[in-house]
């Protein structure tokens, strides 16, 4: 039996998710918003791996799922950064408040 309860892992993931959510909603720099989203994805991965070990039905599936999530997150970071560079070429800014071309 483990000495660390399963709820401790879930609480850590919850704290990291909340930090990422707050950062993504309040920060004005697009790079920081992107990296906050990565932090939220990481918190979700902790949950997946935790349930793969301590869940009702422990199996390797949770870890495989976490690997898929990491692959998709890496692709998302690359595309997000490419969009950021393209926007920067057009508008000379990384401030997220000024990225409103789709508004009008």
């Amino acid at each position: 039996m483990s000495s660390v309860p399963v709820s401790a892992f879930l609480a850590l993931a919850l704290i990291l998710f909340c930090i990422g959510l707050y950062g993504a909603l309040t920060k004005r720099n697009t790079v920081i918003v992107l990296i906050s989203i990565e932090l939220m994805l990481n918190a979700v991965n902790i949950n997946l791996v935790t349930f793969s070990k301590y869940g009702v039905n422990p199996s390797i599936t949770g870890q495989v799922f976490a690997l898929f999530a990491i692959a998709v997150a890496a692709a998302e970071a690359a595309v997000g950064l490419a969009i950021l560079i393209a926007l920067y070429r057009n508008r000379r800014t990384v401030n997220i408040d000024e990225m409103n071309q789709l508004k009008n």
Binding site: M1, V6, V56, N57, P58
Partner: peptide, 16 residues
């Protein structure tokens, strides 16, 4: 947190 704080599953032996 209200949903997870007293979460406790039966420890199932695993070979991960």
């Amino acid at each position: 947190y209200l949903g997870i704080y007293d979460l406790n599953f039966e420890a199932v032996p695993n070979t991960l």
